[in-house]
Nucleic acid binder design. Structure first.
Lengths: 267, 267
DNA sequence: TCGAATTTGTGCGTATGTATC
DNA sequence: GGATACATACGCACAAATTCG
């Protein structure tokens, strides 16, 4: 391993990564550039056969850092520096004027509530609900955010006008739609979980497999305690910076009516 | 690869994983049990030499699922099912009675603000600040949460009583300490990023390297617009479920004074 | 349109580093 | 300090996806 000839510190793959980083930094390999194949790079940088896995390891490092991007069967590319959008939570269905993008509603089948969803909605497993798939697109780009929402059929189905994604209230918030059914939404609860995107999730948010995201499990609660909607928001770190802001009531030892808490476990 | 003799579907490592899973499910390998070494398992399950990496691959799968836990130099163990605590955000320094644990303050050196921190605090790079390292421990356990906090020296240093982790206000919130210096904290802003724990971060929160966490970049803002504190909270998904709750003012198209927003990028 | 060449992804083997007991 | 066990680096074969003639 530590060959006496080898004066260079560290492992071979680290030196290869450094070379690639330099070429990108110098502008020789601009954003969008397709790198030579592993075979060619191994031959050039290590001038010997076989060492392709060293190049691969170096590329994996840079891919994880967000510098490179590999497309299977096509090649490895220098990634264009993408600035992230700011997502102010809670996100309940509105896109302000400042954002050049749109919501897309994909499907709204009536289905039997699967177990974890029924649990979150506070209804019986198998009870009917409406599942809606939304995505957020920025102008001309692929989907950047994916939302899967469930609403109990007994609420939403009672009046066609409150169906998500349809009619005059298509672009309204959950609370606004529910108000049409005389349901007053008083709180939004969110539970956040970090995830690594698998090959099913990744294309739904235009992010590479293995990159990171936060799943927001959101519920809308009405004044009578019923849960009127629950949703999973898939927020890829590649595209979004998740921001929360809390106002502090002076003189109180809490925020927003709830004391700060580190409580015991839920289930 | 697909040996004609091999009737079993899938790859060898998947079959090994299935065997391990079965033994755990059957109770033959209870929580805390130390598995046979990879060498022994490879010999038993694949009755041939060399195939240790097949066992390793299977174990990696189960480790990622949270079923196993590897301790370097010691062995691979069946993980005891751990329930997660609920962390209600924003977390500003209080531990309620319900939580059987404690804060620990580790160090409070005066240092020159590094670049990204100076940026967050709105002070010049190199200006003095106080850095404080906290951890949260549950009774008898290792650290479950790690906080690194920075406060500008010009605020904190002016009065010894407001130094974090010391004096009568050691267990107070940032806002309470700042009130002693006649600084009114009016808002808390948080930015969330999912991360994969590296070998430096992982031991700070008693989580395995490669497991996931959320970093909360928090800032306390005073009524004159100054940032009086900023902190990075390392919240491992293994131990915590991050929960946010927002009250909805009826009739308003927003929450907490800020409209929901998907805005453009920051930097 | 279709198949062959190219390129990345995966599974697995060997050698060696390093932490623990 | 020696034995044991996991972690890492790297090599090869092949599968899968893409591209192009």
């Amino acid at each position: 391993m530590s060959d006496p000839r080898d004066r260079d510190r560290g492992h071979p793959y680290e030196r290869v990564a450094a070379v690639i980083r330099d070429r990108i930094a110098s502008g020789a390999w601009p954003p969008g550039y397709r790198l030579p194949s592993r075979h060619a790079l191994a031959h050039e940088l290590l001038d010997g056969a076989g060492g392709e896995n060293v190049v691969r390891r170096a590329q994996e490092m840079l891919i994880e850092e967000g510098v490179l991007e590999a497309r299977k069967g096509s090649g490895t590319y220098v990634r264009a520096p993408r600035s992230r959008y700011v997502l102010r939570a809670p996100l309940c269905g509105l896109l302000p004027d400042g954002f050049n993008g749109r919501w897309e509603t994909h499907s709204t089948p009536r289905i039997a509530a699967p177990d974890p969803i029924a649990d979150r909605l506070g209804i019986e497993t198998g009870a009917l609900c409406v599942r809606t798939e939304y995505t957020v697109h920025a102008a001309g780009e692929g989907p950047l955010l994916a939302v899967t929402s469930w609403e109990p059929m007994e609420l939403t189905g009672s009046s066609p006008v409150v169906l998500p994604g349809h009619g005059p209230l298509a672009d309204s918030t959950v609370a606004e739609r529910m108000a049409q059914a005389d349901v007053r939404v008083i709180a939004v609860k969110e539970t956040l979980t970090p995830v690594v995107l698998d090959r099913v999730q990744a294309p739904r948010v235009s992010a590479p497999v293995g990159s990171m995201a936060i799943v927001i499990a959101r519920t809308h609660v009405a004044d009578d305690g019923r849960v009127v909607e629950t949703a999973d928001l898939l927020v890829p770190a590649l595209h979004w910076e998740l921001a929360y802001q809390h106002q502090l009531a002076s003189g109180r030892r809490g925020i927003g009516g709830e004391p700060w808490a580190v409580g015991d476990e839920p289930r």
